[in-house]
Amino acid sequence: MIFAICLASLSLPIMASDKAAPSKDGRPKWGFLGDDADLLGTVKEADEAILACVYRIEFQHIQGPFAMVNLHVTVARTFKGRLKPNERIVIAFPIDTLPLDAEGRDKHLKALSDADLGNLRFCFIRRPEGVDKPYEAEWLEVPKFTSEMNDFMEAYHQRSNSK
């Protein structure tokens, strides 16, 4: 199943701060990615840390609650690695939360696609081993854009470039 849209041009204000705003409900600042130290660990383990815009989503190997998601993205900003703005790549990751009934699964996949198309995501990814292979990630390593995470990543990028 493939869903597609046209990509609009991106213009992002970049501001830097050292820390994210504290969580108001006591949960980790970055959700499943944890707190600041955990997020830095994720960035350090990744080959590439980018901000990207989703322009197409493919769901493959759908079986029961499982599927492989291929996010087709355009790189908007690189915080770590060698990818350049405007490069188009594919990021693959598994999901395991699909409804078991076909009708519910189709509605769920459409809702997932509609929610992501044209949106920005941070991507903490590993380079593929081989030509024409997608970059790899876990679903939690492609969080949605927030200005707080953008500030955190910009501060990380500035610190890593000043060394």
Rank of each mutant, 00 (worst) to 15 (best):
M1A: 15
M1G: 13
I2R: 12
I2E: 10
A4Y: 12
S9K: 13
L10T: 13
I14P: 04
M15K: 15
M15T: 15
M15P: 03
D18C: 09
S23I: 12
S23W: 13
K29L: 11
K29S: 10
W30L: 07
G31Q: 08
G31E: 12
F32D: 10
F32T: 09
D38H: 07
L39G: 00
L40D: 05
L40V: 00
T42K: 08
T42I: 10
V43R: 04
K44C: 09
K44A: 12
K44Q: 07
I50Y: 03
I50H: 04
A52I: 03
A52P: 06
C53T: 11
C53L: 15
V54K: 01
R56M: 12
I57L: 06
F59W: 07
H61G: 02
G64P: 01
P65E: 12
M68T: 14
M68P: 00
V69P: 00
L71K: 01
L71M: 12
L71G: 02
V73W: 01
V75K: 11
A76D: 13
A76C: 14
R77W: 15
F79L: 04
G81D: 05
R82V: 06
R82I: 12
K84L: 15
K84Q: 08
K84H: 10
E87A: 10
V90E: 07
A92H: 05
F93E: 01
T97N: 04
D101C: 03
A102S: 15
A102I: 15
R105N: 14
K107S: 11
H108L: 01
H108C: 09
H108D: 08
F122I: 06
F122T: 07
F124C: 01
I125Q: 03
R126H: 07
P128V: 05
E129F: 07
K133N: 11
K133T: 02
P134C: 09
P134G: 15
Y135P: 03
L140E: 02
S147V: 11
E148A: 03
E148C: 04
M149S: 05
M149A: 14
N150R: 13
D151N: 06
F152I: 10
M153Y: 05
H157G: 01
Q158Y: 00
S160Y: 00
S160L: 10
S160A: 08
N161P: 00
N161F: 02
S162E: 11
S162H: 10
K163L: 13
